[in-house]
Design a protein around this nucleic acid. Structure first.
Lengths: 225, 225
DNA sequence: TAACCTACGTACATGCATGTACGTAACTGA
DNA sequence: TCAGTTACGTACATGCATGTACGTAGGTTA
């Protein structure tokens, strides 16, 4: 930081700095324009380089996008996924993840996941598969948490865990990209939607004693262990 | 239809038939690949024509996309917007719109709005402006209904109506594209999320018999043990 | 039937973005 | 200092998709 102008820079530093700048510019570009409309010359220019530097650090457009996806996945996991996983009970984790995601998505870079997921939905492209794998992982994890919450009685019954988990992830993707940055309501709105999805009473207000007197006789799918 | 071989066809009929086929193929293509990745030759081929027909019926790619947007908007308004607007109270309209949207989006064509909205978000493109105008109209209408519902006491207080409306529309876009086609849970999950967003208790309330006949959760969920 | 218009196919021209080859400046180790 | 490597810029080649010009078959009006 102190080195004004950075007159001296080791090769590794130069490489890391350039790679990081390009990665960030690419992330911004991807979240704004998507993969197909992304122009590498503009990415490089926005990072202060030309395509030469880009092709020196990345094999091509595809590898650049994959690197961006990996990078975003890592930061997301560190800032959202891991803290949520630290929650004791599964329901708390689901809510913490939703809130954390809303905060995370205040940066425009975060929209890259939603943009690419939409662009490659039902496609057969390496980048699409990477995104699909990440989303699938999140859906499976959410489904487990939903099943566990229902088994313990923390959650009322509802549609199959996997369908509910799909809705949960889809809600996060869509809702957050709409209200991203409308601080501070983004978090509250996200939590409201997720609570409704899971069948939880609204959080901020008075504790509605869940008057869900549901006899578990036959109807509904009971997750058995 | 079903005219055996259609040996005779008036010019207007030919034109309308071709235009419709191209429009539908374009809608499918747009919802799958987005605008940038859409290849007009494939659109024409899928409709049983070549680019010649397409350029005869439409001025170009942009006008084709605009026509698709207009077409989808019209069908959506007829099948979802208008029935919802027939609801007496604003809250009923919000819920009816959500349910109707879930049903509407079981057709893959419906994803065209979400796909294009994501692709052109924060862009300056004619197609993006068209989508933006439609979405903005929906958001404004939802905001009005939310404000009216709160004023009448039908809805509890919450974040500003406009922010809530943004979340409402974003939820519909994201959630539905994830659970689209997971009949019949798509409707229930959509209603759950929207109810949570608006601060309404879960559907088992005294009014508004959900009447959601439990369907066989026939989707072969993973038999986890 | 003849002339005219419309629907559609085919072939060409253009632009733009990717990828690659190569040149040059900066850093590294002796 | 000097050779070797790394970081990056520049120039060229290629492919692909759009848009346009033109040709032909099918329908229309007299």
């Amino acid at each position: 930081m102190a080195g004004s102008g950075t007159p001296r820079a080791t090769q590794a530093e130069r490489r890391a700095r350039s790679r990081n700048a390009l990665l960030e510019a690419a992330a911004r570009g991807l979240s704004r324009y998507g993969y197909g409309n992304l122009v590498l010359a503009k990415v490089a220019a926005e990072a202060g380089y030309t395509r030469g530097a880009l092709y020196h650090l990345f094999a091509g457009k595809e590898e650049l996008a994959l690197a961006v996806v990996e990078w975003v996945d890592e930061t997301w996991t560190a800032e959202v996924g891991r803290p949520a996983a630290a929650e004791a009970d599964p329901v708390g984790a689901l809510l913490a993840l939703a809130r954390g995601h809303a905060v995370y998505c205040r940066r425009d870079v975060a929209r890259v996941m939603r943009t690419l997921h939409a662009e490659f939905a039902g496609q057969d492209h390496p980048v699409g598969r990477a995104i699909g794998g990440i989303v699938e992982r999140l859906v499976a994890q959410a489904a487990e948490r939903i099943a566990a919450g229902r088994a313990s009685g923390a959650l009322p019954p509802g549609p199959p865990p996997r369908d509910t988990a799909l809705a949960y992830i889809g809600t996060l993707e869509g809702l957050v990209s709409s209200v991203a940055g409308r601080v501070p309501h983004d978090v509250e709105l996200t939590e409201r939607a997720v609570r409704g999805l899971l069948g939880l009473p609204s959080g901020g207000g008075p504790e509605h004693g869940a008057a869900e007197a549901e006899g578990q006789s036959g109807s509904g799918s009971s997750p058995r262990r």
